[in-house]
């Protein structure tokens, strides 16, 4: 394997609160090559926070420390605002959780997509528009010319998510972080969007970080999986090995996943052990 694209060592993120600090991410270390990495964990386990830390986009109040955080030779810890602008969108990008809130409501979606191209690629407006239309086609929007002129509230959820993907991929980043890209969508649209994402990642040879709380989906979609619990990475394993996971939390998560193959009278619940945080 070549040198990893992303290296993170001992990442800590904490938010000041009324009664001391909330440690949203603790001691997280992992590396990533040009592969598909899944990050799974229950709600509030710090997945989004970790993703945003990689983009340097946490709220000002957040305290971020790490021993190493580097991306393709660039030390992210010492990046200036200007360095970040060159990285974001162009080198690493992120598809956000809910398309309904992640698109600018008063800007036509075509312009929103074209903007990313104009920011990073040396092109003019006409060319940016051509690229946008091609990108809309790539995310399987039926009538790109029409959709180009729509406002976000005129889109369905699935279309919104495709637009979001188009907007984040048009400048062809090397790494895409997808933060629960499908959790706001219904199941059929979910699969559709995942397939588009999968195709694009494969064709363009990008690295992908797929954040989700859906174990089944991640294990079938990714090469490797990180399991997060209360801000900590408690387990890391190949997706195919997930069934043999050692950590009790992972086992509990697997056991709690409803399955058609195994008949159950009662859904399992996850019992937590304070020991896991040690």
């Amino acid at each position: 394997m070549s040198a990893p694209l992303l290296t993170v060592e001992d990442l800590e993120v904490s938010f000041p609160g009324r009664t001391g600090f909330t440690r949203a991410v603790r001691n997280a270390s992992f590396t990533l090559g040009r592969e598909r990495l899944g990050i799974v964990g229950e709600s509030g386990s710090g997945k989004t926070t970790m993703g945003r830390a990689l983009l340097g986009l946490l709220p000002r109040t957040a305290q971020v420390t790490a021993r190493t955080m580097s991306y393709d030779g660039t030390n992210l810890l010492t990046c200036t605002e200007r360095d970040w602008q060159k990285l974001r969108g162009r080198r690493l990008s992120m598809v956000m959780q809910d398309p309904k809130y992640s698109l600018n409501p008063v800007m036509r979606v075509g312009r929103q997509i074209a903007e990313t191209a104009l920011l990073h690629l040396r092109t003019d407006r006409g060319d940016a528009k051509r690229r946008t239309l091609a990108m809309l086609e790539a995310v399987q929007i039926r009538d790109p010319e029409l959709v180009y002129r729509l406002y976000p509230h005129q889109l369905s959820g699935g279309m919104g998510q495709r637009i979001m993907i188009a907007m984040m991929l048009i400048a062809e980043p090397d790494l895409l972080i997808a933060d629960e890209p499908t959790s706001a969508l219904d199941v059929t649209v979910q699969n559709e969007v995942l397939r588009i994402l999968d195709d694009l990642v494969r064709v363009r040879g990008m690295g992908l970080v797929m954040i989700s709380h859906n174990l089944t989906m991640v294990s079938s979609f990714c090469d490797r999986v990180l399991i997060m619990y209360a801000g900590r990475i408690v387990e890391e394993c190949a997706a195919s090995e997930l069934q043999n996971a050692k950590h009790p939390y992972t086992q509990a998560l697997i056991a709690a996943t409803p399955s058609l193959d195994v008949r159950r009278t009662e859904l399992a619940t996850v019992t937590r052990d304070p020991e896991w945080l040690k």
Binding site: R52, M96, S102, T116
Partner: peptide, 8 residues
Amino acid sequence: TAARIKGN
């Protein structure tokens, strides 16, 4: 945030 992710 999305606008900033794009590189604005």
